[in-house]
């Protein structure tokens, strides 16, 4: 350390820092913004000013594969009546023809074209998946928001109800409902499966409503005079929708598999009237050992791939929409 210069000897050391600033002071008379040299031009390297310094998030190639496959299935299912394919109920050839160039997926035990049944079956399976989760999602969100945002007695009552609902084994509940209504249409099966989805959805939504309801931005909105409806719509729901969306995508996959499960019990949509992937898999069961495994395996594979695509896209969407807060 150099010897202290005479003018700061004996003074507290920190003082000299500020004394040092004094000599800057003597150099300048008046410093107004307009007088200063354009430092901003020199400073254009400020990270805030550079676009692209912030890396962009990407969904990735696999996501587009998965989503592309799922979209293809949906489009085929929707456009089935207009596609140049045969009537799914029509017998088009001998039973149990192995896949070939004429019957891409072969024929089933009655001689119906499996390819066109898979496409028509997608209509029913997807409809059950979407409708059940739509139902479960709407009811579950309403319950979850009411519990997590309003708190108090409402919360206690609703969450006890959800616990009761959760304590029934899920498939058993669906089973009871289908059995009880005794009509095995897309609508009843969807409502049955949707009811099963209510409690998990409500819990997810409530947990998020609790977290976001306590954030300072909600308090700020209240202090600005926003009413509850506006706070829910503008501040809370936008934060709940992304996790709910990715949860629902995965739940659709679960509902489609569950429909297959109900088919095995003979409790899903009547195979006689409507083809679903579930009842197609079931109808191929006897042929599994009889040399015609494709009758069961092809709809199984399609269901598997669809579910996989949904799960994967759901996960990626969750990661993608996660916003950093800190």
């Amino acid at each position: 350390m150099p010897a202290p210069s005479p003018d700061n000897a004996g003074r507290p050391a920190a003082d000299s820092v500020f004394a040092a600033s004094g000599d800057i002071a003597t150099e300048v008379t008046r410093i107004a913004d307009g007088d200063a040299r354009d430092l901003d031009a020199l400073r254009k390297l400020d990270p805030d000013q550079i676009d692209g310094a912030r890396p962009k998030k990407r969904l990735g190639l696999f996501f587009w594969f998965a989503a592309g496959f799922f979209i293809l299935v949906v489009v085929l299912a929707i456009t089935a009546p207009w596609l140049p394919i045969k009537n799914p109920a029509k017998i088009v050839g001998r039973p149990r023809i192995a896949p070939n160039s004429q019957f891409w997926f072969g024929t089933d035990a009655l001689g119906r074209d499996i390819f066109c049944r898979v496409i028509w079956g997608a209509r029913a399976s997807l409809a059950v998946g979407f409708l059940s989760i739509l139902f479960g999602g709407v009811v579950g969100t309403a319950v979850g928001v009411a519990a997590g945002y309003l708190r108090g007695k409402t919360e206690t009552v609703l969450m006890v109800a959800m616990d009761v609902l959760l304590s029934f084994p899920a498939l058993l509940l669906a089973l009871a409902i289908v059995n009880f209504t005794d009509s095995k249409t897309i609508l009843t099966v969807s409502i049955a499966l949707g009811l099963v989805a209510v409690a998990p959805t409500a819990r997810l939504v409530r947990a998020n409503a609790l977290i976001y309801g306590q954030k300072d931005f909600v308090l700020a909105a209240r202090l600005l005079g926003a009413n509850h409806v506006r706070i829910l719509r503008r501040e809370i729901l936008p934060n709940i929708v992304p996790p709910l969306l990715s949860f629902s995508i995965i739940a659709i996959a679960v509902a489609m598999v569950a429909e297959g499960g109900l088919s095995f019990l003979g409790l899903s949509i009547d195979a006689a009237s409507t083809a679903t992937w579930g009842n197609m898999i079931v109808s191929g069961k006897p042929a599994l050992e009889n040399g015609a495994p494709w009758i069961s395996l092809i709809p199984s594979a399609v269901l598997f791939l669809t579910v996989l695509a949904l799960n994967f896209s759901g996960d990626r969407i969750r990661e993608y929409t996660d916003v950093k807060e800190g």
């Binding site: 954030k215 300072d216 931005f217 308090l219 700020a220 503008r234 501040e235 934060n239 950093k324 807060e325």
Partner: peptide, 11 residues
């Protein structure tokens, strides 16, 4: 508020 980040809706 103290925490500027939690005072702004991230979405």
């Amino acid at each position: 508020f103290q925490d500027p980040i939690s005072s702004l809706n991230p979405r």
